[in-house]
């Protein structure tokens, strides 16, 4: 893929540490203000967890970073969302390129009704890459990164739908990794999984932060505590508290945060 292509947001040849920033971000769905002016800097190569009750705006905020909200009717943004200082909502941004750089994993595993191999190769193929050797290498590399290779290496042509839920989710992460993103957004990636599969994904997230900046929305407080370096607590469209996870879960500054993490409201 040519790096000269117009609209590349992140030049990976320079560095792999990518910082996400928002300045005075407000999000409207028609007249409803879902995000009420958030300034935030998300550190590179760290896991940052977004927590908060349903409807607090954490998923909306997460989806700002790969412009997934663009498809929502009535969506309007004020303020700036920046990746490495570049406003990703300015006109000349190539959104497809942006999404290549900012991968996303969803709550429910969503493999395509294709083979395991084709699922992982999908992102590369739509970029026009058809070199078999290159694709094989990338597929193997991606499946190894998510610790799925040993489980599926002899069944690469089998349908991905036949995999278990936990395997499917790891496959979806592998599909995201194959296109070499720099940032991975995860929206409750383990909420549909059993504890064992959850543990595997959590371990994976912990390992992936060496190479990627990861932002994860989770309703599982213990999960946020276990895997994230930083935690942000959202409530009614506002960022109430954002701190090191160790600090936030042991001695939060704000009473609202304390009430939420101790299960007293929300």
């Amino acid at each position: 893929m040519s790096k000269k292509e117009k609209g590349i947001v992140i030049d990976k040849s320079i560095k792999r540490k990518h910082k996400l920033e928002t300045k005075g971000v407000k999000v409207f769905y028609d007249d409803f203000m879902a995000i009420k002016g958030i300034d935030m800097t998300i550190k590179a190569n760290k896991v940052t967890a977004f927590i908060g009750p349903s409807g607090c705006g954490k998923s909306t905020f997460l989806r700002l970073f790969n412009r997934m909200n663009d498809y929502v009717d009535g969506f309007r943004l004020e303020g700036e969302v920046r990746i490495d200082g570049e406003n990703i909502y300015k006109k000349k941004i190539n959104v497809e390129q942006l999404r290549k750089q900012v991968g996303m994993v969803f709550q429910k595993p969503n493999p395509f009704p294709k083979s395991i191999f084709e699922n992982v190769a999908y992102g590369l193929r739509i970029q026009g890459i058809n070199d078999k050797r290159y694709l094989s290498e990338k597929v193997e590399d991606s499946l190894k990164q998510v610790a799925l290779w040993d489980e599926v290496k002899d069944d690469l042509n089998k349908s991905a739908i036949a995999l278990s839920g936990g395997q499917q989710q790891r496959l979806c992460i592998a599909r995201t990794l194959a296109v070499e993103p720099s940032i991975i957004l995860m929206d409750e990636p383990t909420s549909a999984l059993d504890p064992l599969s959850t543990a595997k994904i959590e371990e994976l997230i912990y390992e992936l932060k060496e190479k990627y900046s990861i932002v994860i929305v989770t309703h599982n407080m213990q999960q946020a505590g276990r895997i994230s370096d930083y935690t942000a607590f959202f409530y009614l469209g506002e960022l109430i508290e954002y701190d090191r996870t160790k600090k936030l879960f042991t001695n939060p500054e704000k009473q609202q945060t304390e009430n939420y993490i101790t299960g007293r409201f929300g």
Binding site: T250, I261, T262
Partner: peptide
């Protein structure tokens, strides 16, 4: 049973 955090844990 409660996986306490913050002041509950302390």
């Amino acid at each position: 049973l409660h996986n306490p955090v913050a002041s509950d844990l302390r």
